[in-house]
Write a protein that binds this DNA or RNA. Structure first.
Length: 573
RNA sequence: GCAUCCGUAGCUCAGCUGGAUAGAGUACUGCCCUCCGAAGGCAGGGGUCACAGGUUCGAAUCCUGUCGGAUGCGCCA
């Protein structure tokens, strides 16, 4: 069992003993008792707020409870010193052997060190990317893709059963436009000179689609009426776009489990509507005019509405248009109905910042359909500003020229793209500077973390050349300065759990930067004082112990990078 | 008009499921440095955590309001 849960158990056991002995009133709730590393390392290795949290319900002074608890905890063999501090904190200092044995645990568990079972195998669906299949993936999709994928991995590490999902918007007017644009390219492939009118997709990426359509169908649809080819071309063009999107995602190392087609919803929409009707949440009504910018073409009309306002939404939402056809929202409700039917315990969606206004109605729908049993967590992913040496990169969507994911990955590599996308909370804006992200300096976290890993790898290489036999590592040879690094490394299981609970994969990137800093600091100490070096030809036993230490740190870095979907480098160039 | 997110050191950001003197990098100042992998090391100065109230033993963190910024609002997708 990992360090902190283990000590939480010790503290709980001690409190239960005090309750059993009548020193504390029986039946106190320990729910708010926390056992954590103190913010300031000089306070010790571990702290608990138990005395302060329990003071009021127990009707005792915090320091009195702390003193009783201290006596109990002091008897634990792992504890070197207990101190009551401040308003009633209990600070524990642990024996150095505790850190040595934690280090051994890292070595034993290896690539699984940090995996947790707090997810209890609950099934969770993470839907991300869901870019419209009308073009290749561009920069705007990139961050959501990376954050979603890393979050999915993180949840797997935390013990959830994760499904990675992509929703294909292949049923609206946009895909008709795609089909028409593809038809133009098809005619072009037949030798016509075409002009792409306003409102069509102008991008060059449709040229090969036109060629593919020509190869499949020959010239039979060149001048045929639209009704004859629209559905066919739509299906084919969407399929080709999805191939391309999958290839783009693969460049980022992303492979989703389920690609769910909106067009395939079919009877699900009616089912979802019936489910809501059965709950009395559907009615015919007229919505008020939207506020703000006046909508010229708005007029009040009776529609089929969902009472989403009962579930925290700002207004009720239309499911069916006045002509009886479904709204886009109805499709989304049906899609989430389908997810619920598939039996997930929790749902997570990643939305671009431009869909922020959609959050409440989706949560309302899921709450209504699942009777509040299945939480839908929606993460908003903010814009990325692309820069080149501080200057904004110019993009023109109108001409169809934008920076694609393929461009980015080709220029700086998958690992750099992924890492940088995780260096800020997803709900704040991110600058991506092509020049800075490949810089080899302390400021660049990708480099800094990879550099630590490369240095560790180089120790092994150096040793292979040096030709001296190492004994089995004896961790007892590690001193306090060596163990300082272990104290950072053993935080990893906590980071996994906390980041997973908060659904914030960026915390992994920050943690790895901290761990790398601890390692570099140790390394640099060796430059000032040769006695502190990892490899000491004059001391094989110490070298063996320090290498075990370095390897463990390298292992934790690899595990963290694995969650981020970044490969660890053994060498930098 | 309403909603969501944001406002922390000169700059870029952590911390936000309440805890002890608010952290990191960068920039700035002063020393040191050619090192197991150069792409530095150590130390120091720098903050009314936008503002005002409230809850609490305790608030950057929770609640309310104000100001400022971003985004969104539809029978579109």
């Amino acid at each position: 069992m990992n360090l902190y849960p283990r000590f939480a158990g010790h503290v709980a056991a001690a409190l239960n003993e005090l309750m059993a002995a009548g020193d504390l009133p029986a039946g106190l709730s320990l729910a708010n008792v926390a056992v954590e590393p103190p913010r300031d390392a000089s306070h010790g290795d571990m702290a608990t707020n138990a005395a302060m949290v329990l003071a009021k319900p127990a009707g005792l002074k915090p320091r009195d409870i702390a003193t009783m608890l201290a006596l109990k905890l002091n008897r634990l063999p792992e504890v070197a010193e207990v101190e009551v501090a401040g308003p009633g904190f209990l600070n524990l200092r642990l024996h150095a052997d505790v850190w040595r044995s934690e280090l051994a645990t890292i070595t034993e568990q290896g690539a699984d060190y940090g995996r947790s079972s707090i997810g209890a195998n609950h099934r969770i669906n993470v839907e991300y990317v869901s870019a419209n299949p009308t073009g290749p993936m561009h920069m705007g999709h990139c961050r959501g893709a990376v954050v979603g994928d890393a979050l999915a991995s993180l949840l797997e590490w935390a013990g959830y059963g994760v499904t990675r999902e992509y929703y294909i918007n292949d049923a609206g007017g946009q895909v008709d436009t795609l089909a028409r644009s593809a038809h133009l390219r098809y005619r072009e492939a037949l030798g016509e000179t075409v002009v792409i009118p306003e409102g069509f997709y102008p991008g060059d990426y449709l040229i090969p689609v036109g060629e593919a359509l020509l190869a499949e169908f020959g010239g039979q649809y060149q001048s045929a009426p639209e009704a004859e080819w629209l559905g066919l071309f739509r299906t084919r063009a969407v399929a080709l776009m999805m191939d391309r999107i999958r290839a783009d995602l693969a460049m980022l190392g992303i492979h989703q489990d389920v690609f769910f087609s909106e067009a395939s919803l079919g009877p699900r929409v009616q089912e979802a509507l019936e489910a809501l009707t059965a709950k009395g949440l559907i009615y015919e009504g007229v919505l008020e005019a939207p506020k703000g910018e006046a909508a010229e073409d708005w007029e009040p009309r009776p529609q089929t509405l969902f009472k989403s306002s009962l579930f925290g939404d700002d207004s009720d939402r239309a499911m069916q248009k006045s002509d009886g056809s479904w709204t886009y929202f109805a499709g989304d409700v049906a899609y989430h109905w389908d997810k619920l039917q598939r039996g997930y315990d929790a749902l997570v969606n990643l939305f671009g910042a431009d869909h922020g206004g959609y959050v409440k109605r989706m949560q309302a729908a899921v709450r209504a359909l699942s009777d509040g049993k299945v939480p839908l967590d929606i993460k908003i992913v903010q814009m990325v500003k692309l820069l080149r040496a501080g200057e904004p990169v110019k993009m023109s969507k109108r001409s169809g020229n934008f920076v694609t994911i393929a461009d980015m990955v080709e220029e700086v590599g998958k690992d750099v793209v992924r890492f940088i996308m995780l260096t800020k909370r997803s709900d704040s804006q991110l600058d991506f500077d092509f020049a800075k992200v490949v810089e080899q300096s302390r400021e660049n976290p990708v480099f800094y973390v990879q550099y630590a890993h490369a240095r560790i790898a180089s120790l092994r290489r150096k040793l292979a050349e040096a030709d001296f036999d190492l004994p089995e590592p004896d961790l007892a040879l590690l001193d306090e300065a060596d163990l300082a690094m272990v104290k950072v490394a053993v935080q990893w299981p906590r980071i996994v759990e906390q980041a997973a609970e908060a659904r914030e994969p960026h915390r992994v990137a920050f943690y790895l930067a901290d761990l790398a800093a601890a390692f570099h600091s140790q390394w640099n100490a060796g430059n000032d004082d040769a006695a502190r070096r990892f490899v000491r030809a004059d001391a094989p036993a110490l070298t063996a112990a320090r290498l075990a230490l370095a390897d463990a740190v390298g292992q934790v870095i690899r595990n963290g990078l694995a969650v981020m979907g970044v490969e660890a480098a053994d060498e930098l160039h």
